[in-house]
Amino acid sequence: MSLTSEDNKIRIELSVNEAMALGLGVRYAADSSVATNARKKVNEALEAALFQIQPRQPQLHYELIEA
């Protein structure tokens, strides 16, 4: 997976079976986890890309804390 900030694209390496399961909705009776694994790869890549661009940092508002 790679992300370029100029064009905001991610690249994910999928097998042919995974690409067919995602793109065409092909179901594999012998291995029903193909589509699940492909979606997991896409979700992980998106999550990594989004956190890389906009990291979440919890903010603590000290003025709201009562002593």
Rank of each mutant, 00 (worst) to 15 (best):
E44Q: 05
I65A: 02
K41R: 12
E18F: 03
K41D: 06
I12T: 06
H61F: 08
Q54V: 00
E6D: 10
Q59I: 05
Q57F: 09
A67V: 12
N37M: 06
P55G: 06
L64I: 01
F51A: 03
Q52I: 00
S2G: 07
S5T: 08
A48K: 15
L3D: 07
A21R: 13
E44I: 14
M20Y: 04
K40L: 11
A48V: 05
H61W: 08
E63H: 14
Q52N: 09
N8H: 11
A49C: 06
R39D: 13
V34H: 03
T36P: 10
E44S: 02
D31C: 08
S5E: 12
R56D: 04
A21D: 10
R39M: 10
V34K: 11
E13T: 02
T36F: 12
I53E: 15
E18R: 07
Y62Q: 04
A48C: 08
E6C: 03
A38F: 01
M1G: 05
T4E: 10
R11M: 13
L46W: 03
D7E: 07
P58Y: 09
K41T: 00
L46G: 02
V34W: 00
A35E: 05
G25P: 06
L24R: 03
A45W: 02
L64N: 12
A29C: 01
S2D: 14
M1Q: 10
P58V: 14
M20L: 14
E18L: 09
A30P: 01
P58G: 06
I12C: 01
R27P: 00
E66S: 09
V16H: 09
L64V: 05
A21F: 05
S33Y: 04
E63L: 06
E66H: 13
M20A: 13
D31Y: 08
R56F: 05
E13I: 09
L14Y: 15
L50V: 01
L60V: 06
R39P: 06
H61K: 01
S2E: 14
Y62A: 01
E6N: 08
S2H: 11
L50H: 02
A29D: 05
E66T: 10
T36A: 07
L14I: 04
V42S: 04
G23W: 00
V42N: 03
D7Y: 08
V16F: 07
E66L: 08
A35V: 03
N8C: 07
L60K: 04
V42E: 12
S5A: 15
N17C: 03
V42M: 13
K41A: 01
V16L: 12
A19I: 00
L46M: 11
A35M: 07
E47I: 04
G23H: 00
R56G: 02
Y28W: 03
Q57N: 15
E18M: 01
S33N: 11
A67E: 08
I65N: 07
Y28G: 02
E47H: 09
L24Q: 11
L14E: 13
I53G: 05
R56T: 05
Y62H: 15
L50T: 00
L64G: 02
M1S: 12
D31T: 07
